[in-house]
Nucleic acid binder design. Structure first.
Lengths: 229, 229
DNA sequence: CGGGGTATTGAGACAAATCAACCTTGGTGG
DNA sequence: CCACCAAGGTTGATTTGTCTCAATACCCCG
């Protein structure tokens, strides 16, 4: 069977991970790739379990979280289509991943995937870049938690979701996660998150269509609050 | 010239990075390794500058920090002997590094180093593990900033330094960094840091020998406050 | 023995957590 | 179709924790 006989799924081309790869390389990746459907509420994997797979989100939304023994939780990130999960360098996952909205994932056995990364310089570059982005985004979050006030942290989240959610710069934001999830992401309580929403509304920056739908009225101010301080 | 003719410096053997490597491999690493002395207060490299080197701390202490345009600062980490700096996946450094106490470093040109990483599986495993540890430690800090009170965050730092600083479990901690550095690391102000010290003292957990020297009286409580919550 | 930078302590202002009540919404069964 | 219920979200009152501003203490160095 010639490699070009396997047509890689279309979504391959939309992912940074596969940018610049030749057809042969894509075909090999397609060969070790499986699809997985994950219903809302299900766990993809659990913290401390062996890191056996690497994932690319095709559709849906997931939440990356870390739990302490006492049950306190820190949400690390929300994963949207095109995002990567499990690009960890450790043998065990550092976090749990749970599905917020029915998701479809490309799954690659980690061992096989790393072998291909070794063989294809372009893939290696891409994978490195992704790993770097994960750290960069975590450092941004660290900055937000260390330096910002409640409503600024919320802007940080809204700006982030606005960027991630679909390509075009939309002013309409859908919040798939609960207030508790947002609170645990930003290091706040649900009440403070709620008040932060109210504050942004009275500041004229957002409009609250419903609890899970926000309309951004002034993107520049939002970005301003989200970033510099 | 046979490879064994180049004797790798002794410190090579003390670093996780070089664990399990053969003499030939060590010799090649020694070939691209240079020593660099960095005086107190000097910068090792600046945020956004191209990532040209990878470093291993041999002696001294350094501080990894990130600055926003408005001048606000987030301290990311403190680096002690045996720690690694610049194991970034991005082409530019995400942070600045400044020397807190006269340091000696092993420096490797990043390009050459990555080539050797590709050639030596053991080295690759080690490097991956180090990268993973960096992320894990950042996630711990994220958790601390998101979930903990001032005196708990301070315990987090003290426990961390206690672990890093020399091998044996010492109860004597030297704080090389200033109160401002600690504050910017923990996302607090210097006054709150000072009060947190006072609180831990009245709780009977530490003894304050001087501003930069702490004696740990109850390590178990310290660790407890540092971790679980 | 000053003197300047650094750290501590105190008082008041402010932000966020906590506790409690109320409101919204979406689903269910009468 | 509507009343009811439960879960999630909002709002209010109070407490707690941290920041801010100001004064004072400490210590290292000349």
């Amino acid at each position: 069977m010639v490699s070009s006989a396997i047509k890689p799924p279309e979504t391959f081309f939309h992912s940074k991970l596969f940018r610049g790869l030749g057809n042969d390389e894509l075909a090999l990746l397609a060969g070790i790739c499986q699809r997985r459907r994950l219903p809302t509420g299900e766990q993809l994997f659990r913290q401390y379990s062996p890191a056996q797979h690497v994932y690319v989100v095709v559709s849906g939304t997931l939440m990356i979280e870390r739990l302490s023994r006492s049950g306190r939780r820190q949400v690390i990130a929300f994963a949207y289509p095109g995002d990567y999960i499990g690009f960890t360098n450790t043998d065990d996952y550092e976090y749990s991943v749970v599905c917020l909205r029915e998701a479809e994932l490309q799954t690659f056995p980690r061992r096989d995937f790393l072998q291909l990364v070794d063989r294809f310089p372009t893939l290696k570059t891409n994978a490195r870049q992704i790993g770097g982005n994960v750290l960069a985004q975590t450092l941004d979050q660290l900055f937000a938690l260390g330096q910002k006030k409640a409503h600024e942290r919320l802007c940080f989240l809204l700006a982030q979701i606005g960027r991630r959610q679909c390509g075009t710069q939309t002013t309409d934001i859908e919040l798939i996660m609960s207030r508790q999830d947002i609170a645990d992401y930003l290091g706040l309580t649900i009440e403070t998150v709620s008040r932060a929403f109210a504050r942004l509304k009275t500041m004229g920056i957002i409009e609250i269509i419903s609890a899970h739908r926000i309309h951004v009225l002034d993107r520049s101010v939002l970005e301003e609050l989200a970033s510099v301080h």
